[in-house]
Design a protein around this nucleic acid. Sequence first.
DNA 1: AAAAATAATGTTAGCGGTAACATTTTTTCT
DNA 2: AGAAAAAATGTTACCGCTAACATTATTTTT
Lengths: 348, 348
Amino acid sequence: MNKRVTIKQIAIELNVSMMTVSRALNDRSNVDSRTKQRVLETAARLGYKPNYVAKSLALNKTFSIGVVFPEISHSFFPEVIKGIERVASKNEYQLILSYTAENQSREIQALQTLESKRVDGILISMAQDVDNTDHYKVLIDDGIPLTFFDRCATGLGASCVRIDDYQSALLVMKHLMGLGYEKIAHLHGPVELELGRQRLEGYKDAMKSGNLSFREEWLVESGFSEKGGYEAMNNILALRKPDMPEAVMCVNDPVAIGAMEAISLAGLKVPDDIAITGFTDDVRAKLIRVPLTTIEQPTYAIGKKAARKLLRHIASKDEEVEDIVLDTRLIVRESCGARKKSEKLSVL
Amino acid sequence: MNKRVTIKQIAIELNVSMMTVSRALNDRSNVDSRTKQRVLETAARLGYKPNYVAKSLALNKTFSIGVVFPEISHSFFPEVIKGIERVASKNEYQLILSYTAENQSREIQALQTLESKRVDGILISMAQDVDNTDHYKVLIDDGIPLTFFDRCATGLGASCVRIDDYQSALLVMKHLMGLGYEKIAHLHGPVELELGRQRLEGYKDAMKSGNLSFREEWLVESGFSEKGGYEAMNNILALRKPDMPEAVMCVNDPVAIGAMEAISLAGLKVPDDIAITGFTDDVRAKLIRVPLTTIEQPTYAIGKKAARKLLRHIASKDEEVEDIVLDTRLIVRESCGARKKSEKLSVL
DNA sequence: AAAAATAATGTTAGCGGTAACATTTTTTCT
DNA sequence: AGAAAAAATGTTACCGCTAACATTATTTTT
């Protein structure tokens, strides 16, 4: 391995100053075009590779943004990251990814490291068990642009790109209630997260507006995983017959899938015995035995919008803090019996 | 935003030299314990955050590794990355991710940027359309540890973590042939990739060893996507009846899923009319209407092993170059009729 | 208690690049 | 042609931190 080529060596080679070389390499205006030419040639000949570490130190800018996310196994976050990557790479930013596994301490650790790496900004989707926002405040106080996506912290003066969880929950509930379901349960996400609260509120308000009373036992926290959904559903299934809900609105698709598994193992059928709804439109939602009625989120767009917003925050300290809310869409499949009913109708 | 706290400020505050502060912060042995105590306290009080950019420049080490991968939408790579992340974060390395979208020029660009960012090493899975390996050689010549995973370039003296594609292909073929299929087609991946060639060789050798003749029309390149599988399958379906294969071995699950779509749209049934096999065990494989017989890869383990190997290369220039081959397993589901047949058997 | 060994701290220089200002060269203008 | 303006290049200092060597303070040894 040859010693790394530096600007200095190019300068010596051409008998000019380092600054001239630097200017030529960065395509500044005030360099003689012939000089620039010679510099470029020599750089190529010697195999010069700029050292971004040194450049970052001198410029106090790293051209990298941190992306902190809680989960990677399911389809939502990879797709969001793809959107982020698209925008970042177009703007010559690199992504430093940190996975938190839904764990607050890992999240804190990740943010500290990213700050020490002096990333120019951070995109973050909160971990499930985050119970306070001090570690975000530190970053904001230190002037590091921070933009949330999907799972946002409120009241910190940071931008956020998300869907309208409350309205989307209403959408789902309207659908269920329109199909005549009255006893509706909700496997909800962590109430520490705004997203969990909003979907829960949507559920409650929909029940209220439909004059439907609900039992406390119909509210079970499930987290966001299949396992959580499975266990939460088993709590529901353990209820006495008269207390058993006819439909269950799940906080997301993995939970819904876990719940369906529990229902199936209990010898019951979806949607005949219990209707199920999801949220997210996981790749699996349309493929499972009973395709899942769910909310479609503009996943890729969330990533792109979030990245764009962050880049604007990076470009200007005065960029306005925004709460960007993207539209969702209800996808009706078979897990609530709607399709079947309409099929029946068409047969009539 | 307060000005950033540096070692210098701590040094002035305590009236010691910067070196003493540096040593204390890095927990070196030869610092008076009381001094160390005072430094740590002051650092905490002032809100000192180490600047890794400066540290990296001084030490010529960035504690970050680049991960270059071609696809993120399906489940394979996210799972591998999860494995990589696990090992990296345990060793206090950060991941800089670069997504190439199966595109060689993006791959080249990504590698250049990573080199300029002076990552300590790079993990890479080749893009589909890579047709030469010069850009890898540059890195290797520059002494940057490079380890391939899943899709490896051979003959470059770089370590590689992968499965045995040839043997796995044989496994699939043996299964099909054991079920009595003789007219077997293969939707193959790009032959530029070792992986594509190996699976293709496995197919050919299996046919040969079974004394089965095959037509050239049964070999169709499909790439790695659903769309590619769909289109390639349509080529097969356009064959005259007597030339039609009874089974199709697909290079991976997305291709198999695309192929099944094409078959279904052609009004045919899997496995009754045509049997299908996949490769990868995508999350969807067991969920689709006709669950897919496929090869299970130790995805997470590939990530972990690759990361460990790379870290060892980083730690020592003398680390032996290895070709690490992990075991796979055939998962028999219903897309070849095997399950059904055995069910029939049990009824008898 | 003086010499030797050890521990603690300090000094200098450099990692590779760039901003800001200074100087020299070239061009433009009257 | 000489002054002024513009263009090209050079010099100095610094970004924040650490290695390597130098020095000073402390402890150990006989």
